[in-house]
Each structure stands twice: as C-alpha cells, then as structure tokens.
Simulated assay, not measured.
Amino acid sequence: MENAYMLEFTHKNEGELMLNFCGYSKTEPLHSFGPAVRPHYIIHFIISGKGNYYVNGRHYSLSEGQGFLIEPDVQTFYESDEKEPWSYIWVGFSGSKAGKYLNETGISSDFPVFSSEHGERLKKYVFDMIKHSHLSVSDELRQTGMLYLFLSAIAESSYSAGKTPAYTDNIYIQKAVEFIQNHYCEPVKVNDIADYICINRSYLSTLFQKYIGMPPMQYLKIFRLTKAAEMLRLTELTIESIAFSCGYSDTAVFARAFRQFKGMPPGQFRKYSREKMNSESGKDISGIVPESECEI
C-alpha cells in the first residue's frame, strides 16, 4: 500500500524534453512495484526512509538523498524497507534529447543510482509541477521548465553510487559481478571470483567494500536471495528447486537466509507477494499530497 499523488500529461507532438507524469508517494513497509517495464524514463528521488532497487541483475540498497533511474523497456523491481519504508518523488519524461541530458548528468544504465544534496530543491520542483497542472500553455511551459531545473539540480551534485574513478578497478568490479551473475547457482567462493579476474582475494574484498559497500560473499548472498524472491513470485517451482537453483544445497539453510533477508519464510513470501501483485494489477496509483507540501 502507498499514499500517493500522481499526475499524467499528454503531448500532441514529440519535443526535445517532455514531462509525462510526476508524483509523490509515502509507502507502507515492503510496498513494491514490479517486476514491470515502463515506456518512459523515470527518476525516483528518496525524501526519507529506505528501500531496494533491482535492475539488470543488480541490487541497490538506497536511502534518503539518493535516487534511481528507470529506463524505457527495461524490467525493474523496487520495494520499500520493512522497518523504514521510503517516501519519494518521481518524474517520468521522454523526448528526442532525454537520453542525452541524462547521460550528461552522469546517470545511465551502467550507473542508474545517484546521490544529491539538493533534495529540497528537487521536491520543490516536483510539487510546483503538481500545483501548476492546468491545461494551459503557461502551465505546460512551466512544467517543462521545472523538469529542466530538476535535471539541472541532479547534475550539480550527483554522483553514481557505483561509479569508480579508476578505470581498471571498475573493470575488476564489472568482471566480478558478471562472474557472480553467471555462476551464482554454483558453490562459488571468494577465491573463485578472485582467480577469474586475476587478482588476490584481499584486493577483491577491498574493491567490493570500497565501490559496492559490502564484501563479495555478502553481494553474492543478496544476489542469490534476490533471484530466489523473483522465482518465488513468478514461477511454480518448489522451494527446494529454487534453493538449489540459487546455489543452496540445503533447503533449511536457504529458508533461514531468506527469512533473514525478507522477514518471512519463502512460502509465506510467495503467497504475500502474489496476493499483492494481484491486488495492485491494473490499479492506478492515486492519493492525496498534503496541501502544505504543495506550497512553493
């Protein structure tokens, strides 16, 4: 569940940059969206709380002051934290130069997560879009102007959560992540990853801690459990089969790890997530933004 407010806009002609929708949401614990594919670029920026974002086999744990990009026709899934559910603003946009502007801010498919110290400004711009939503030329121009300001504020101070200053280090991380994605169903050890990319175990751990924020085995564990959660939602495989498919030879060990990861056993998660997906299927996100939040 979430308390949200969203506005959608239609455009007769394709322009360089066009606002398609915008909104604000205060979510409940474990509220999620997806797996889904969207037709436009969407940027979410977290006002408070925590959550998780999954895209292209990667998992990002995010909190206040961070944001994430959803690209057109790319399947994504995101979920609010169980204890500190996030509130966020979002803008959806398109246009002939939308991709170009995004790349210039430093956000891309390779680095879809960013941080910005201009959270209050970003929030102000989105609420201004919401407030000035009449079908008039003046409001349409104002909304487009706010969208440019929104991207400008991100460009001023954004940095990708995974972007590395050293090209060689970035290559090591990329190769290590690729190895994990291709071999997570096997009994992988840190030495296996280090040997594959031809560096020692200690340096590999240092790189992961520096650029991803966790040791290699923790990243592998999260990747496995994320895959398991996806399979529980989308397939009819038994829990034992899913455990084996995600690198766990012992179903009991898998069940304990999954419960720690999601706060509930695998079977309960499957039932809960499917009931939630069914209840939200085709449902338009709508709600109320407090009037005080719209004051600019």
Rank of each mutant, 00 (worst) to 15 (best):
S202D: 10
S205P: 03
T164A: 15
K210A: 07
V137I: 06
E178S: 14
G145R: 03
I193R: 01
N170M: 08
H183W: 07
Y172L: 08
L141A: 02
D192P: 02
S152Q: 07
K163T: 10
T144Y: 01
V177F: 03
H134A: 15
Q174K: 15
P216T: 12
Y159Q: 02
Y167N: 11
L147N: 01
Y211H: 13
I212R: 15
P216Q: 11
S133T: 03
T164Q: 15
N191Y: 13
H183Y: 11
K163Y: 12
S138F: 04
S160N: 12
N191Q: 14
Y219V: 05
H134K: 15
V137G: 02
N200Y: 03
L151C: 04
K163W: 01
E140M: 04
A155W: 01
I212T: 09
S136W: 03
A194Y: 02
V188G: 09
S157D: 12
G213F: 08
L151A: 06
I197P: 01
T206M: 08
Y196V: 00
L204I: 11
I171L: 13
I180A: 07
E140A: 04
T168W: 05
Y167Q: 12
F208E: 02
D169F: 03
Q143M: 12
Y159M: 06
Y184G: 06
I193C: 03
H183P: 02
S136H: 03
D169K: 06
L135R: 07
F150G: 03
M217Y: 13
H183R: 10
P165C: 01
L220K: 07
G145N: 09
V188Q: 03
I193V: 13
D169H: 12
R201S: 13
T206S: 08
Q181C: 05
M146N: 09
N191R: 14
Y211V: 01
H134Y: 10
F208K: 01
N182L: 12
L220G: 05
H183Q: 07
A194D: 08
S138I: 08
L204F: 08
C185E: 13
E140L: 01
S136N: 10
L204V: 09
D195H: 04
M146S: 05
V190A: 15
M146Y: 09
E156L: 14
R201T: 15
I199L: 08
A176G: 12
Y196Q: 06
A153C: 06
N182G: 04
Y196H: 11
M146A: 09
L135I: 11
N191S: 15
A166L: 13
T164P: 00
D139K: 00
V188P: 07
Y211F: 11
K163C: 08
T168R: 12
F150E: 02
E156G: 02
R201F: 05
S160A: 14
Y148R: 13
A194T: 05
D195V: 05
Q143P: 08
I199N: 04
Y196E: 11
A161H: 12
L147A: 06
N200P: 00
Q218K: 13
E178R: 15
